[in-house]
């Protein structure tokens, strides 16, 4: 197995993470924001796997599982809330939810 240089491997998760961040910032739809967050989390998960691979430890993969669990939990709660929001504001535009400000 040829070793890929560490810096090269990192490009993917960093890009993914950046994509996720950009998604959160530019998308107005709450569902898409949620999805972008998932991308960010997965980027972190990928990073854990790479790190685990680097040190030859299972810890990275364990963490990835934990991340997945979190993502699932968050999505379930998130979707429930999004339904309530939709119900109340009749829109999924995140910018509409700015009742609380100042």
């Amino acid at each position: 197995m040829t070793t890929i240089p560490l810096d090269h491997v990192l490009i993917l998760p960093v890009l993914l993470f950046a994509l996720g961040v950009i998604g959160v910032l530019v998308r107005r739809n709450l569902v898409f924001i949620l999805m972008s967050i998932e991308i960010m989390l997965n980027a972190a998960g990928l990073m854990f796997i790479i790190a685990g691979a680097r040190w030859g430890q299972p810890d990275g993969q364990v963490m990835f599982l934990l991340v997945l669990t979190l993502a699932a939990a968050e999505v379930s709660v998130g979707l429930a809330l999004i339904i309530r929001i939709r119900h109340r504001l009749t829109t999924l535009d995140s910018d509409a939810a700015d009742l609380l400000q100042g």
Partner: peptide
Amino acid sequence: TQTGRIRWYAGWLA
């Protein structure tokens, strides 16, 4: 700066 918008807040977080 306290606009109440999620995306704005996330932007500042970043």
